[in-house]
Computed example of a mutant assay.
Amino acid sequence: MNRAELSLSDEAIERLVRLHSGGAGAAERMDFLRWRGLSMDHERAAREAEALWGALPETRHAEDYRRRVRRPRRWLALAAAACVAAIAITIALPEPLAGLYSDYATRTGERRMLELADGSRVWLNSDSALSVDFSPQQRRLRLHSGEALFEVAKDAARPFIVEARGGEVRAVGTRFDVDSRGPQVRVDVTEGVVQVNSAGSEPVRLSAGERLSYREAAAPEPVQPLDLSSASAWQRGKLIFNQRPLGEVLDELERYVPGRIVLTDNALRQHKVSGVFDLKDPDALLKTLERLQPVKVTHMPWLVLIRPAPKA
């Protein structure tokens, strides 16, 4: 980034802080709109400042900022440092926070295979937490957060039940994936048959090659077809994308890297991405995106900015 770009970034940050100080009125907002419309570089600087403001919660306290710092570069450094410190504390723990009450947990970027007492196997994806409670009557597991792939040993006398966000997935002998990263739980079946119960609705049976999503306290969505060639590719150490929107690709990649990935231009979210990428080298995916997509990747402490590539 050259000196002129740094100056515009500083000015954009300073203007944005003034707008969020609590004392800005219509005149200041119109002035900011006029400023960002002066050129594409001004607009780019404004969008990056807005992305940083949203990505680092500490930066929203503008009044506190005015008391503590005077120069925008110093403000940015302090905000980034606060974010780094918070993340560092979490990483320093022996397991993620969910690990405090779960039997098994993985950190960001870590994947782990578990051999259960009944012979079943579980693969935990990045930043996931799981508890196991086996009894003579049933095999019950709880996915507190994240994603897990289950390869179930057959035992007709003891159903295999996975709880996730108010729903249950039941299987006898099968292979299925449960993804509970957000408010919506996704169930993918790659072998056998499972039964999904959620929100008191009628149970839904899923066969190999089918996918279902549900939300807590809501009826499940319609069953969708599942691409078996790319399903649970993470368990094999791969990310496979076939004409997936860039926004979805970055959301998926973010779970394997520390910190945040922020796309500063929403117009880029729908750009299609295809390819097979190695989870051992997430940075290679970013480098490939920079080479094949109209984007510029900027690495910062615990933050990766994806912005439109400057025109030649």
Rank of each mutant, 00 (worst) to 15 (best):
S213V: 05
L285C: 06
R269K: 15
D64F: 12
A267Q: 15
R255K: 09
G192Y: 04
G37A: 13
V185Q: 02
L16R: 07
S198L: 04
E168N: 11
L8P: 03
R111V: 02
G23L: 10
V189P: 00
G22D: 09
M300P: 00
R112E: 00
T106A: 04
P220E: 04
D133V: 11
L292P: 02
E14T: 09
E43T: 08
I161G: 01
V297H: 10
H144W: 14
P308D: 02
T190C: 03
L239G: 04
P94Y: 00
K296A: 14
R3A: 15
H61Y: 14
L19P: 00
A284R: 12
A62W: 05
L263H: 10
L305N: 05
Q138I: 02
E290L: 06
W123Q: 09
D41I: 05
L268Q: 13
T108Q: 07
E252Q: 08
A157H: 10
D103Q: 04
S131P: 00
I261D: 06
D278H: 10
R111T: 06
P136K: 15
A156G: 03
F32Y: 15
F241D: 05
P245Q: 08
R66Q: 07
E202S: 11
S213N: 05
R60E: 03
R18P: 04
R3M: 09
A4E: 11
R211V: 03
R70N: 07
G200E: 03
A199L: 02
Q195K: 03
L279E: 01
V17F: 12
M40Q: 15
A309P: 02
G54H: 11
L19H: 09
A309C: 10
A129N: 02
D281R: 15
A105W: 00
R36L: 14
V193R: 12
E163N: 11
S21A: 15
E28R: 12
R244W: 05
V249H: 06
P72L: 14
R44I: 01
L16K: 08
R73N: 13
E221W: 14
A77F: 06
G259L: 03
A284H: 07
K280V: 06
R244F: 03
S39W: 14
I240T: 06
S126H: 02
S232Q: 05
D283I: 03
A49E: 01
L97K: 08
R291D: 05
L116V: 03
L141G: 08
A129Y: 01
G166I: 02
A217L: 12
A231K: 08
A218W: 05
G99L: 02
R175Y: 02
E168T: 10
E28I: 11
A164M: 04
V276I: 13
H61L: 08
R47I: 06
E115D: 12
L263M: 15
R165A: 13
E48L: 07
R107C: 01
A46S: 12
D127R: 09
G25S: 07
R140G: 07
R121H: 12
P72T: 11
L289M: 08
G192L: 01
S126Q: 00
V194R: 04
V152N: 09
R255S: 03
L206G: 05
L292N: 10
V172C: 00
A267I: 14
A312K: 15
N242H: 11
D265A: 15
F176K: 04
H20S: 14
E63Y: 08
F32T: 06
A218M: 09
E95T: 13
S198F: 01
R36S: 10
I87F: 10
G146R: 13
K280F: 01
P308I: 01
A49T: 00
R121G: 04
I13S: 14
